[in-house]
């Protein structure tokens, strides 16, 4: 006897039973208790054939390979830099992943100093507590001046929009340089403070109203008004 006890895209809470029977397989955010598959996170159910998973709605950023993230240097050691990327553990940027060539024993603050904000890419997540990032690659660098704001990581796809529609619209309209990290940090650099503030306000609005239909059109209108 196999039965699905919930519907796809339903919100579930920890301890809620999702399916009965051995034909379904538990994936991310779920566990099996004898015959039953139970959720262990607050999130949205996704059923793919017989695999059930719960996509979390809240929580800290969980690093995934190839994610672009924005972080702040919190520590410098012999091996490289420790970077806070808003996940449970700081990420490691080792010397050989930083730039072309750094001499042994060189002063590392020359490249990235304490408190510097950098855009980086996740290259390895062996376990949750060892995250390796790199700054080699297009667009990955130290972010000089500008503003960094934080949003909930689960809302990042909304900020970007379908095929980047939302973000490119804001960029074009305000002329600001915007970089969105998958960890929910957004770097904004504009031609003027007013422009930066406008983008900040708009991003706050997207975060608040991320559930509304036709949000892109609404933001477009707002941008035109403000100009």
């Amino acid at each position: 006897m196999t039965k699905l006890l919930i519907q796809e895209k339903e919100i579930v809470v920890p301890g809620e039973e999702l399916a009965e029977g051995l034909d379904y397989l538990p994936s991310m955010g779920t566990y099996r208790d004898k015959e039953k598959i139970v959720s262990n996170k607050l999130g949205v159910v996704s059923v793919n054939k017989n695999i059930i998973k719960v996509i979390p709605l809240t929580g800290r950023y969980m690093p995934r390979i190839d994610d672009t993230v924005i972080g702040r240097v919190v520590e410098i050691g012999f091996y490289g830099w420790s970077v806070d990327i808003g996940s449970a553990y700081p990420a490691t940027l080792s010397i050989r992943d930083a730039t072309e060539f750094i001499d042994k024993g060189e002063n590392l603050t020359k490249y990235y100093d304490y408190g510097d904000v950098i855009a980086a890419k996740v290259i390895r997540t062996a376990r949750y507590n060892s995250i390796d990032i790199t700054t080699k690659g297009p667009g990955l660098k130290k972010l000089i001046s500008g503003n960094v704001i934080e949003v909930t990581p689960s809302k990042v796809p909304r900020m970007i929009g379908k095929q980047g529609s939302m973000i490119s619209m804001i960029k074009e309209s305000t002329g600001c340089n915007i970089l969105i990290g998958q960890n929910g940090r957004i770097w904004i650099k504009g031609t003027s403070l007013e422009n930066e503030n406008l983008v900040t306000r708009i991003i706050m609005k997207i975060e608040e109203e991320s559930h509304i239909d036709g949000l892109t059109d609404k933001i477009k209108k707002l941008l035109e008004e403000k100009k």
Binding site: K41, L57, G59
Partner: peptide, 11 residues
């Protein structure tokens, strides 16, 4: 705890 996205077997 549930709101913070911590994995929990149950409430």
């Amino acid at each position: 705890l549930a709101h913070a996205g911590i994995p929990m077997k149950d409430l």
